[in-house]
Design a protein around this nucleic acid. Structure first.
Lengths: 256, 256
DNA sequence: CGTTTAATTGAAAGCAGTCAAACTATGTGG
DNA sequence: CCACATAGTTTGACTGCTTTCAATTAAACG
């Protein structure tokens, strides 16, 4: 369990990831009212068509954004990893246009929407940090749209695995990327626009080709370069260069 | 042809669309260096993997964002209509992650990226206006992803037509929405993740069902409510409530 | 009026979806 | 510790939506 100061510190790190912060700005962030909440798998953090009243920084666990058609089909829009802000997208809009749900158990540093808005309205570097984060999110949406709209099943699934490995994986590409695949095959399907049955066939085929190994919930990608090329994966769209690696590492540790 | 003051005035309207502006802010925008350029159909305004050095306000004509897979398949990500900022998404990022291309002849008010960035870095309401616009763009991406990933061909095409009608159409829903369909069927296909051949079949079928009429490049949607329901279209994701209708109308006129 | 571009149509093939059932893992309560 | 329940994975057979390929017609353009 974390105390309030260390939660606030996480917020500072989050805003600082997209550019250097002045001391006064850092102090202002530390003054933001915030609290830590935990939620179980499947818990909603944002509901479409609702007014969202809080912003949240994901401290641990994973979450996902999604929308549902009138017919009931679900499209997962992105995966939210620790260190990401959950709801910048509705900070300046009236009604939420998508849902955010916990993928497993999650821990979120919650900040009242109004307080964050006030801060953004008074400190430009806060507002531009938010804009930068929104730009990165948009970039990820674009790549996903390309993935869903214009790639075949093999490439779609491979691409998602590559993204997850890049964003979650401990960076030891020597023995191949390895990470816990928290998503069920049905959710993977909803993320790449396929049925769970077909996701299963594709993953088995990747396994047969030696591009993927599974033990329990953990996935290893032994031939990273090959999979990356086969999956048309280029990490430019993640814009991770904007993230100082120092912060990234420290954050992970703190979230334990 | 427009003179510099009236171009600057358009920038003020653009920033003012997401919230009221103070007089000082308005003056600051009017001081932005800007110039009007015209480009022919197919001209690139932004190229993926390039550094984008300018931001542009689309004054007249249409443009579209797109990405291309390694295999050469193209996905159109969104349509840019007059009054939209073209490249807020790369204002705070180093490298462009998608292309922006003119759909027909376009006229763009160009502002140097650095100048706009400086303005955002000094005036919070500018930065939050940009963040708001980015949020709306992101919302549109999300809906498109749902469209491409989880709807059938009929619904996808219908949904795109509904969006175009809403964003472009003269609002006379009495005789049905009517607008100029600038996109070829191939581009429509690239926008909704289908082949041009199938788009053609779907449009013919919509026409047969009386949901669509065409004369030259102009499209009429005579039974709007029916099409809207059949296409699972709800305009919430466009967040047009944030746009004061006064501005919207005036802008269109000025662009002539 | 010819040339180019876009729209249209048909036939055949294929990728992914649907349906249904079996299997495996995981966890729970007795 | 076992029996049972539940959630998730795996597999097969069949269907069908969409693509592909190819050719024709219509429209736009200089």
């Amino acid at each position: 369990v974390l105390d309030v100061p260390s939660i606030s510190q996480k917020l500072v790190e989050c805003f600082g990831r997209t550019g250097p912060l002045g001391d006064d700005v850092r102090r202002a962030i530390l003054c933001l009212p915030c609290s830590l909440i935990t939620r179980g798998a499947g818990a909603y953090f944002v509901r479409e068509a609702d007014e969202s009243k809080t912003c949240g920084l994901l401290v641990s666990g994973l979450a996902y954004r999604h929308k549902v058609t009138a017919f009931g089909a679900r499209q997962i829009l992105s995966v939210i990893v620790p260190g990401d802000m959950i709801d910048f997208q509705h900070l300046f809009l009236n009604l939420a246009d998508h849902n955010v749900q916990a993928l497993g158990d999650i821990c979120v540093a919650v900040v009242p929407r109004a307080a964050l808005r006030d801060l953004a309205n008074s400190i430009p570097s806060i507002a531009t940090a938010i804009a930068t984060q929104l730009s990165i999110d948009a970039s990820i949406y674009c790549e996903w749209m390309l993935n869903v709209g214009r790639r075949n099943a093999q490439t779609r699934v491979g691409h998602l695995l590559c993204e997850l490995a890049t964003r979650l994986g401990t960076d030891v590409p020597a023995s191949g990327h390895c990470f816990e695949l928290v998503m069920t095959q049905e959710k993977i399907g909803d993320a790449v626009g396929l049925t769970s049955v077909h996701v299963n066939r594709v993953m088995r085929s990747l396994e047969k080709d030696g591009l993927l190994t599974r033990r329990q919930r953990f996935v290893t990608l032994p031939r990273w370069d090959e999979l990356r090329r086969a999956s048309d994966f280029n990490d430019r769209y993640l814009h991770q260069d904007r993230m100082s690696s120092a912060h990234a590492g420290r954050f992970e540790d703190a979230a334990r």
